[in-house]
Design a protein around this nucleic acid. Structure first.
Lengths: 205, 205, 205, 205
DNA sequence: CATGAATGAGCATTCATTCAT
DNA sequence: TATGAATGAATGCTCATTCAT
């Protein structure tokens, strides 16, 4: 009698909205109770859904959390990639990238790490989540590598193996961000200091 | 007429040995299943004791894990402090400290962190373990601060606020150690690169 | 367009029915294994539920048992209070009260006492359940006091302090009820004898 | 070379002394932690013996507690029986018996009851301890029956079935003793009131 | 599709009892 | 005989997952 076309889209939209609401709720619960403290019931209550409904959208609690990470990581990587591929001139581009890294580390990267990494070296290969974490690191590595490659070409970065530079950059950011996260205020500007040390180190000269 | 003394020592020794066996077993379980995955039953099985026996040595699972950390941390801090207070001349002392930091990070520091830090910024104050973690960090901070103060006096480190330097040093070490822990071999000497970047950064000149 | 109302009632009814089934099961378990011998698993098995289901209805084993007592006690006190406040003329009202006390003592009061009273004087204040038991006693005391006050006014009870009378009445009832409960049949009518002795004692004259 | 005779007695005496120390310790633990809260380790610590040593003297925790009751009960019954068989003239003898009952109820009978009686009617036949409790009651019953028989002959007690009188007497004592045990002070002399009500009841006339 | 009650395996912890020294 | 470490079954409770309505 009528085309079945107009309806499905609405259904679909609704469904996606609910899925997103659940993810948002999960993120809030993670923030308040810590990742290990999350239960499906907490998420359900926070999202104002029934427990069973969560399972309509995600096969398991684990999948829900992985999806959450994927979403956050994606958002973050797109931002970072856009910046790296953007038109900013060099010293500013590097500083902007450090700022972004720093901000995201304070915000959501901890969650990502928490979900996948028993902090410490890395989840043993075979551990649940190990593969996903490896992929995340890979992706970040590629973007930062691109950033530093441009720096070598145009920004005064030392030539040669970029791997230690990538490690240095992320290590510095992580350390300063954790310090801020734990309430330490040493009286300086973290993002600026990260960049300064990354470029010139701590010795006189 | 005779002391009941000769025997107790054996009992005592035996007891301590078993206690240590349990701690060792716990460490092995942490390594294989991750800290969150540790179960009293796992530890018991690994230590080849009955569940109840664990509780004769430790009041609770929590206390067992805290003890484990305390032992590892103490060993590590004493080593580091001895080195820092030792007679080595400066550039070598710094390198030696970095080497030690690096080695211990690959080995046991991840466990320490894992036990106390929901990875991410820091456990919220009030969280179990938060206070202990804070104390650990404090202790490491103090030792490294001493190391860097000597560097400012005698070793060519830039004068001024040492806080960002401490953060930089630990961040660099952590990052390179994690990389090695996850199987990445970028073809360089991590400890040497850490020191080089810490001192001179990554830019040319 | 349509209310989602018609269904919830059924759910709700079902839920309450199950809750009641659990309470009933718990009472049966108390009767067979004694209060101290009650296990959540026993209750679950008796109620034909899974262990976890018990906890959907009661926050803890303790709360379940307290609820059980509250229900029984409430039923009993309402009955007793109704009788005491009722229109019966005096000698009959007193006999009716004794009958009721006696019957309930044989049935459920022992449970109530058992749940709250480590038999013996009383749970030390601070003991879990001590406060609740005190409240139960208070409530029974108030009702019986009212009953005896009316007896002093209209029923030939001696004037003066009613406290020993309350103690005497409950003591007599408890003793005769326990005797019946333990299978002793001395050949008399317990409730009648309780009243007779309460009023006139055991001496001639 | 020498007679083995002189020694055994000392050994035996020592052994009995230890046994008694354990019983005393058990009684103290019961008093502080409640009967249900007693553990073998508590008793051992209180008695300053090792856990295993307890089992040299008592086959099981249960047997230890039963022995404890037996000792207390025996002491109590002997006292009571001596009084009942003694030369006191009647009204005084009854009062003295009530006083003794009352005192022992406040002291150790609660323990006896606690050990054997889930308060309430009685442990179901077959329940552990049921038989022993029955025996205790029997013994008390016999003594009190003798007391009341003498009262019927010489002391103005009503003739006829003494069973309800026994029940009344114990019920009154128990009730008043419990009240005192729970801190209630109604302003009268409990033992005197017990006797008065037992003899003459609560009605005027 | 949404609901939320039911499930049951899993976990930390306790404690009576045994046994090698 | 005394010791006390070792045992392991038992208990209260949690939580991811299922499924009838």
């Amino acid at each position: 009698m009528s085309e079945p076309a107009p309806h499905p889209p609405r259904r679909e939209r609704e469904r996606l909205r609910h899925r997103q609401e659940i993810l948002d709720a999960a993120l809030r619960v993670c923030a308040t109770r810590g990742v290990e403290g999350v239960t499906v019931e907490h998420v359900a209550r926070e999202a104002e859904f029934a427990v069973g409904s969560i399972y309509r959208h995600f096969r398991s609690k684990d999948e829900l959390l992985k999806e959450l990470v994927a979403v956050l990581a994606d958002r973050y990587f797109q931002e970072l990639d856009a910046l790296v591929c953007g038109p900013l001139p060099y010293p500013e581009k590097l500083q902007a990238a450090v700022n972004l890294l720093y901000d995201r580390h304070v915000e959501s990267l901890p969650l990502i790490a928490a979900l996948y990494a028993a902090p410490g070296p890395m989840p043993a290969p075979g551990t649940p989540g190990a593969e996903e974490l490896r992929a995340l690191r890979q992706r970040q590595w590629a973007i930062l590598d691109k950033l530093l490659a441009e720096g070598q070409a145009l920004g005064g970065l030392a030539p040669g193996n970029r791997a230690p530079m990538v490690l240095a950059l992320t290590g510095l950011v992580t350390s300063f961000a954790r310090a801020e996260g734990s309430g330490l205020d040493y009286g300086g500007d973290p993002a600026a200091d990260v960049l300064a040390i990354f470029l010139s180190g701590c010795s006189t000269s």
